[in-house]
Design a protein around this nucleic acid. Structure first.
Lengths: 359, 359
DNA sequence: CCACAGATTGAGAACGTTCTCACCCAAGTG
DNA sequence: CACTTGGGTGAGAACGTTCTCAATCTGTGG
């Protein structure tokens, strides 16, 4: 056993009594505000040290109106995209003396709504939200109206008073698709992971349709994919757009289905790295080789992308920077910035490795 | 614009006034304690609804002494091990109405100590800590003494009053090494990732040395590796134990060094999946093939392990369950359990795939 | 009609800080 | 000497809840 066991933490009143001053003076000595004589300060600090005093930040927050806490709402922290982005957010927050309260929403609208309520009750100073695709604009706006600024990460919510940080999904997807087309591929599949409604929209979009499509992340990328095809004079084939689910097994199944098609795709664009793993797994199962039989390009430069055989060509997003920028933007708002809402697009980088070959 | 903009959130006093009752009654009506007439309750609820009232959980915590917040201290949330474990913790917490405050320590002792202070000031109800290898026992014990229970995840801190959740690292490493030995390998390398001090200790340990070694996670696994060698009558060779660093590049460099050795290893045991990626990368660079030229087994069943070629044989830890169990254990303590401290070891599972072949 | 138990209510304390304000005192200034 | 100045101090309010306690109301049984 080391040191004495104390159950309840001492309050500033106890410290003041021990130091022989008033609570007001003790507060000033420890909090670094107001003015205190050297003698008082030293007496208080010694007493605090002796008693193992820790200020109660709850009481402080009640007075100051600041919790120095940022809420972070992500679909799933296990997803490498979000864990890396969270790291960026946390670092930005920490750097300026803020902490991070994390909630997973599981892409579940009801959970997201409930979490917003909980975080509002905790009086977080601001919120970084990666909303579900069908985000509840009103619930988010209500939080903003209550005085809690929001920064959206990765996805956008039309009409919401919030800053946004993300990439140009449409341009990035278009670029990736163009690269596959330039390699001679004419039958390029798109693995989106979700949003069943995409496929029909993609076939006969009309201008209005494409614009509406581009509102979600997946939608924007699908639109970019389509842009590239159309510009290259390749007719988009709805059956080449797969939206079976977000899990690896879903992607594997989708790949098997795609490759069984008449006039099967010779190249696949996967919208995230987990889906790419599914493709790889399916190819291995089918005895097909990448890139000899099928070329593959994926979004996100996962840590394994460079190490596997063949190394995967990817659209790299600056994920950490996305999170850090969101954190900084949010803290600016928290600290009183009332600039117009910005929609920041960070640049992506195509990393050419060996999984996409000419045909 | 939708709805009216309100900057400051209404307090219960405003709601009470609006409903024509006292704050006490309003509190009872909204908080679900005490007894309230149906009429009052309905009036209060209607007023609260109208004003968009959200209780201030800070004020509540001041009274009840519970913040319903769990602190989580991990080295790096980007590490898939910790992000998965965190998911387990968060789910367990959420299930019982708790939230999670996250801090990264970057394996930095000073940061860990500072974070402990911050979380104590926030009056978190409990703490899940994955301590750095050289954890500050006294700092942790001080938190426990202040009445905040701690559950240790993955690593142990001797002499600390805390529950522990992890795996039997020594047995798991021994099992993995034995499997490689059974395949006929006689020159098996160990890639630990860190702790330079390990190597010399491993060569002439003596009983005392091995026991001390086994205190850290890495150390315990190294001891298990050694156990297997000794039992099989293979002389441990210190130069086959690499501890160059935790990053992928470090592992790649270490692999190149190992394979340039006279009597080079024909099998490698990597202590985490990131290190395994480094091995794979180095092998590709050297034009060597797995498992034809070198067999590889790694800890942790990363999401890519099954999808790459060859699929990686791994020691799978129940990572999510580890986190969830830590969360549950902690909440039991928070809610008053004073059972003896337990050290829970969850079972690991060796998943045989194709990266380890007989020689 | 009275007494009484139990439900319902409101005033005010409590939690642990920071903030406001009035006061004291020593050191200048005219 | 009277008057200002300003650092230092403590009493008490404030933040928004929950808790304690006494008072009031309601209905029931005698």
């Amino acid at each position: 056993m080391s040191g004495s066991v104390r159950r309840a933490m001492p309050s500033i009143e106890i410290v003041a009594k021990e130091a022989g001053v008033s609570t007001a003076t003790a507060g000033r000595a420890l909090g670094g505000y107001g003015s205190v004589s050297r003698k008082s300060r030293e007496a208080v600090q010694a007493a605090a040290e002796r008693l193992g005093y820790r200020p109660n930040s709850l009481a402080r927050s009640m007075i100051t109106g600041l919790t120095h806490t940022l809420g972070v709402l992500v679909p799933d922290i296990e997803n490498p995209f979000f864990s890396r982005a969270l790291r960026g957010i946390a670092d930005a927050a920490h750097e300026r003396g803020w902490e991070v309260l994390l909630v997973n929403t599981d892409e579940d609208l009801a959970l997201e709504r409930k979490a917003l309520g909980v975080l509002a009750e905790r009086r977080v100073d601001g919120l970084v939200v990666a909303p579900t695709d069908v985000a509840d604009r009103d619930a988010l706006q209500a939080v903003v109206d209550a005085g809690i600024p929001i920064v959206l990460l990765d996805r956008r919510v039309p009409g919401l008073d919030a800053d946004t940080v993300g990439i140009d999904n449409r341009a990035a997807a278009k670029d990736a698709t163009e690269r596959l087309l330039k390699l001679g591929h004419r039958s390029v599949a798109l693995l989106t992971g979700g949003d069943e409604k995409l496929r029909p929209k993609l076939s006969r979009p009309g201008l209005r349709g494409v614009e509406r499509l581009a509102a979600t992340t997946v939608g924007a990328r699908a639109a970019g994919y389509r842009d590239a095809l159309v510009e290259a004079g390749v007719e988009p084939r709805p059956e080449l757009v797969s939206a079976e689910g977000f899990r690896r097994e879903d992607a594997a199944a989708a790949t098997r289905r795609l490759l069984a098609l008449p006039d099967a795709p010779t190249a696949i664009l996967a919208l995230d790295s987990l889906l790419a793993l599914g493709v790889l797994q399916a190819l291995r199962g089918l005895g097909m080789r990448c890139p000899a039989d099928v070329s593959l390009v994926a979004f996100d430069d996962a840590d394994w992308a460079e190490a596997i055989s063949p190394p995967l060509s990817v659209v790299a997003q600056p994920i950490y920077e996305l999170g850090a920028e969101a954190g900084r933007l949010l803290l600016d708002r928290v600290q009183g910035s009332d600039k117009r809402f910005t929609h920041r697009r960070l640049p992506t980088r195509f990393i050419e490795r060996e999984s996409a070959a000419s045909r």
